[in-house]
């Protein structure tokens, strides 16, 4: 309700040129939408969102799977390691953003570390270089969110019956063969749910970008996302009609992506897995 009703309003406001004061009167039809798609900054924001969506899936997926399989083995101290891996995920995106901003300042900690390791050639203007910033952000997001994928996968792994892996071990399968042929296939639903949640989160990413990136860099499009573009223009520049048009675009893109994903990949799982109950 709190989403549907506002979105209805957003569609209405998006048809006006409106500064947010008094009722909207200057009807402009779909002009706000055409303006958005003609603005190179908005197109950059779209590209950045795409980079974050696919980058997150491609990088976090394999890492999380590897770590989850490792931490699913039984060994002493495992609980402590599990806890530590989740730490970045629990912290606020804002806190993480500020933290990395400090670590990545010019000749800051990361640069000093790289130099001391003899990799001074890698030193960049991490958050100010227009070509580098989005990849820096992707790396920070990976650091923060891979823990979430690991939590989900570990929860999924604990549902894999021991009998199955034990039976495979008795049949002479190696640890790796068991993972490859028994465990990972059984994780399918969990992996698909994670992909879904990751995708939706990536499309709406805001906090981290907002606090980490330099406003000038953002306004040039190098680090903008749809959400920061929407807030920059709609809220802070008071272009309410235009901002609402961007909100509708963001909503439609996210919702269509969600529906497509659900239709083709999640259909089986959403009944059985997310809800825990199949009809």
């Amino acid at each position: 309700m709190f989403v549907l009703v506002p979105m209805g309003f957003a569609v209405y406001y998006s048809l006006f040129r409106w500064r947010g004061v008094g009722p909207p009167t200057e009807f402009v039809g779909l002009r706000n939408y055409t303006l958005a798609f003609q603005d190179p900054i908005f197109l950059d924001a779209l590209r950045n969102n795409a980079i974050i969506v696919f980058g997150s899936l491609l990088i976090q997926g394999p890492i999380a799977l590897g770590v989850a399989l490792l931490l699913n083995r039984r060994f002493r101290g495992r609980a402590v390691f599990r806890l530590l891996v989740f730490v970045p995920y629990v912290l606020a995106e804002v806190t993480v953003g500020i933290m990395w901003k400090l670590l990545l300042t010019d000749e800051g900690t990361v640069d000093a570390l790289l130099r001391s390791l003899g990799m001074g050639g890698l030193v960049q203007a991490w958050l100010a270089d227009l070509d580098v910033v989005i990849w820096t952000l992707l790396a920070i997001l990976t650091w923060k969110y891979v823990g979430f994928a690991i939590i989900l996968l570990l929860a999924g792994l604990s549902n894999v019956p021991d009998e199955l892996t034990e039976a495979a071990a008795i049949d002479g399968a190696s640890w790796w063969q068991i993972q490859r042929h028994v465990t990972i296939p059984l994780l399918g639903p969990t992996i698909r749910i994670w992909m879904f949640l990751s995708m939706i989160g990536s499309l709406q990413i805001f906090d981290m970008i907002w606090v980490t990136s330099v406003p000038a860099v953002r306004s040039l499009g190098a680090s903008a996302t749809m959400a920061t573009y929407m807030v920059d223009n709609g809220f802070f520049a008071r272009l309410w009609g235009y901002g609402n048009a961007v909100a509708v675009i963001l909503f439609v893109i996210s919702f269509v992506a969600a529906l497509l994903f659900q239709r083709f990949l999640l259909r089986r799982d959403i009944e059985g897995a997310i809800t825990g109950r199949a009809k």
Binding site: V3, P6, M7, Q204, A227, M230, N244, V248, L250, Q262
Partner: peptide
């Protein structure tokens, strides 16, 4: 669950 809450922030 499928609705992107972030998109609703301005009208909200």
């Amino acid at each position: 669950l499928l609705f992107p809450a972030g998109a609703a922030i301005l009208p909200l």
